[in-house]
Design a protein around this nucleic acid. Sequence first.
DNA 1: CGACTTTCTTAACCTACATTAAGTGCTGTT
DNA 2: AACAGCACTTAATGTAGGTTAAGAAAGTCG
Lengths: 191, 191
Amino acid sequence: MTSIIQNISKHISLTPEEEALFLSKTETRHYKAKTIIQNAGQVCREGYFVNSGLLRSFNINDNIVEHVMSFACEGWWISDMYSLLSQKPGNLFIEVMEDAEVVVLSKVNQDQLYLEIPKLERFFRILIENSLVANQERLMDNLSLTAEERFEKFCKKYPGLIQKVPQKQIASFIGVTPEFFSKMKSRMLRK
Amino acid sequence: MTSIIQNISKHISLTPEEEALFLSKTETRHYKAKTIIQNAGQVCREGYFVNSGLLRSFNINDNIVEHVMSFACEGWWISDMYSLLSQKPGNLFIEVMEDAEVVVLSKVNQDQLYLEIPKLERFFRILIENSLVANQERLMDNLSLTAEERFEKFCKKYPGLIQKVPQKQIASFIGVTPEFFSKMKSRMLRK
DNA sequence: CGACTTTCTTAACCTACATTAAGTGCTGTT
DNA sequence: AACAGCACTTAATGTAGGTTAAGAAAGTCG
């Protein structure tokens, strides 16, 4: 049983035939670190489920400052939701941070699968619901917590990531500059 | 044809029987302005579709500072998604800002309806997808734009709300204090 | 291995926004 | 009419976090 099927069966149960049909509509790809698999300004036509490795999505402001929207490691999905849903050019880049194996589900195949296996509507509804809740929390945290508190939450929520992700990208994710993050971190250590 | 059925039929089509079934699982309520219909610390058991009037959801930080999570006027849905989905105590209050008529869909009935009218999975999936995209944009805006830019976006996105919503709550929504918002506004007018 | 690039740190200085506080003008209630 | 209570404004002062710049450390690649 592959990992993506495990992921789906957490929320709905598929027959072996449905599993096979689902898998037949996906494609497994291997990417080297630093590959950009989605560019801002282009229409996003695929969602990605991460089998192994590490990816991130981010946008670039005024052609200078990067803002990390999300990280995705084993068992996570990643895409440019805005662009994928609207099929308009998006603002996000998606970059492979560590050599990765991903399961690719194209927008076209996903839409077909909704018709062929209506239960998948439920699966993706639940997936998106969870994303929305996480996003709302992150938004409120950004409005109401200090950078230090946000970093503490980040450490608790994604204990695996702190080791793997360059510090400047954690800084970007929680919404501060790398310089300030560095200062803050050493201030926190001194306590 | 009631407004909530119009709202649904934007994304899926229901038979007259399904429409009737759906409506039979809802309840229409009238609330006076200033009513709190959901309290932080309690489990949220209902979602609300606004027929008329104006509501907002917000949390309170350190028992002092309010942060507006969302506004909802005619044709919008509002709830405490985290609490509604997890059935754990939530952090949000939901308050009626202007006398309102709302269609109430309880969690229990919603779950039943998913079984009786599976197409509704699709409807709510799409609804949540759109919320997620809007939320992601708001998050990136908070990370990368100035308060002034966020306010300009707010005005474009919700032209109707600026008239109706007290200024301090717009301030809270875009993430600044009422005092700073006031100063910023007069600075913007001077140009 | 060395050359090059990128990340991280430190420190001086800067600014967007917060805090505090006092005052003005509504609106609703009695 | 009068008072209470809010929403809004203004202004002085405070601070979290940004900017700039320069050097140290660490990763990357030939």
